[in-house]
Design a protein around this nucleic acid. Structure first.
Length: 349
DNA sequence: GCTAATGATTGCTG
DNA sequence: CAGCAATCATTAGC
C-alpha cells in the first residue's frame, strides 16, 4: 500500500491516513507470513514456524517443502495481482487525468475536481486491494492449518525409531523418564524431535500403565533383545559358556545413555540370579554391575528407588516403594522385579 | 468400512 | 514447566 500511495503520486489521503486497523492487521499478517515481505526468502518466517512445529525429521521435510512451495505460490499470486491492480489503478488514473485535461479545453476544471476524481479512483482500487489481501490471508491461514496441524499428517515413526524408543523404555521400566540429554540422544538416534520423544514417552507410559498386560509380550521381547545385545557385549569380554542367558545390563543399544548399570533390566536380573558368572575375570565393573542388579532385585519392592548415581534420570515421581506406575493403579503391580506380572516371563529368558 | 494402534494436542496438576 | 489423562486425527491391518 505504500506503493499505492506513492504510485498514485496524488495523495489519496482519506482512506490511508487513518490507518485502517483491519487493513493493518492484514498487512501485518501478510508480512509475518512472509507473503508481502522482502522479495526473497518467500515465507521464511512461516516456513521456520512450520519447521519448528513439526520437527525436522527427514520425511516431513518433504511436506515442509511442499508447504513452502504452496506458500510461494500464494505469494506469487498475491504479488502479481497486486501489481496488476496498481498498474490498472495508475493507468486508469492517468486516463482520467487525460480526459479531464481534454475537457479542460472546453470547460474550466478546477484542480480540486481532479483531486476528487483521483480520490474516488484510489478508494475504489484500494478496496479491491483490501479484498485481495483478505483472501490471501485466508489462503495462508488454510494452508497453515493444513500443514501445521501435525495431527492431520502424522506419520508413524520408522520401525527403527520405535525400536530404539522401546528399547530404552523397557530397559528403564522402573523409571522411564529420560532426562533432557537422554531425550536429545534418543531424538538424534531416531531422527525425530525432542518433543516427539517426550510425546512418545508420555504416551507410552500412560498406555503401558493402563494395560500392562497388553504390553507384556512386548516387554519380554525387548527385554530379551536388550539382553541379547548385552550378552554379546559380555561375550566379547568374557568367554564363558552362557547358553542363552542374558547378561550385563549394558543398557540396550550401544549404551549411549551412559548409565550402564541402571539396574533396570528387570528381565535380565532374574537370570542373573542364576549366577552364571564367576566374576573372576569378568572384570570389576561388570561384576559390580551384577552386584548392583542383585541388590536391586533383593530390594523389597524392587522398584529400585536407589538406582545409585543415575544422574541422567530425572527423579521425578519415584515414590519410595512403588514405581511410577502405581500412582493410580495399585492393581496388578505384581512382580518385584518390575515386569508387572512378568512372573511367568522369566522362564522365557 | 471397521477397528486397533499411534502420534499429537489440550487441559489440568503439582 | 514436565508429566498425566483424556481426546483427537490419522495410519495400518483386517
Amino acid at each position: 500500500m505504500v506503493l499505492v500511495s506513492a504510485g498514485l503520486s496524488i495523495r489519496g489521503a482519506q482512506e490511508e491516513d487513518p490507518p485502517d486497523p483491519q487493513l493493518m492487521r492484514l498487512d501485518n499478517m501478510l508480512l509475518a507470513e512472509g507473503v508481502s515481505g522482502p522479495e526473497k526468502g518467500g515465507g521464511s518466517a512461516a516456513a521456520a514456524a512450520a519447521a519448528a512445529a513439526s520437527g525436522g525429521s527427514s520425511d516431513n521435510s518433504i511436506e515442509h517443502s511442499d508447504y513452502r512451495a504452496k506458500l510461494t505460490q500464494i505469494r506469487q499470486i498475491y504479488h502479481t495481482e497486486l501489481e496488476k491492480y496498481e498498474q490498472a489503478c495508475n493507468e486508469f488514473t492517468t486516463h482520467v487525468m487525460n480526459l479531464l485535461r481534454e475537457q479542460s479545453r472546453t470547460r474550466p476544471i478546477s484542480p480540486k475536481e481532479i483531486e476528487r476524481m483521483v480520490g474516488i479512483i484510489h478508494r475504489k482500487f484500494s478496496s479491491i486491494q483490501m479484498q485481495l489481501k483478505q483472501s490471501t490471508c485466508e489462503a495462508v491461514m488454510i494452508l497453515r492449518s493444513r500443514f501445521l496441524d501435525a495431527r492431520r499428517k502424522r506419520r508413524n515413526f520408522s520401525k527403527q525409531a520405535t525400536e530404539i524408543l522401546n528399547e530404552y523404555f523397557y530397559s528403564h521400566l522402573s523409571n522411564p523418564y529420560p532426562s533432557e540429554e537422554a531425550k536429545e540422544e534418543l531424538a538424534k538416534k531416531c531422527s525425530i524431535t525432542v518433543s516427539q520423544v517426550s510425546n512418545w514417552f508420555g504416551n507410552k507410559r500412560i498406555r503401558y500403565k493402563k494395560n500392562i498386560g497388553k504390553f507384556q509380550e512386548e516387554a519380554n521381547l525387548y527385554a530379551a533383545k536388550t539382553a541379547v545385545t548385552a550378552a554379546h557385549a559380555v561375550a566379547a569380554a568374557v568367554q564363558n559358556n552362557q547358553t542363552n542367558s542374558p547378561t550385563t545390563p549394558n543398557s540396550g543399544s550401544s549404551g549411549s545413555f551412559n548409565l550402564p548399570n541402571s539396574g533396570d533390566m528387570f528381565m535380565n536380573m532374574q537370570s542373573l540370579n542364576g549366577d552364571s558368572y564367576q566374576g573372576s575375570q569378568v572384570g570389576a565393573n561388570v561384576q559390580s554391575q551384577v552386584d548392583t542388579l542383585r541388590h536391586v532385585i533383593n530390594q523389597t519392592g524392587g522398584y529400585n528407588d536407589g538406582l545409585g548415581g543415575n544422574s541422567l534420570y530425572s527423579p521425578h515421581n519415584l515414590n519410595a516403594n512403588g514405581g511410577w506406575q502405581d500412582a493410580t493403579t495399585p492393581s496388578s503391580v505384581t512382580s518385584p522385579t518390575e515386569g508387572p506380572g512378568s512372573v511367568h516371563s522369566d522362564t522365557s529368558n
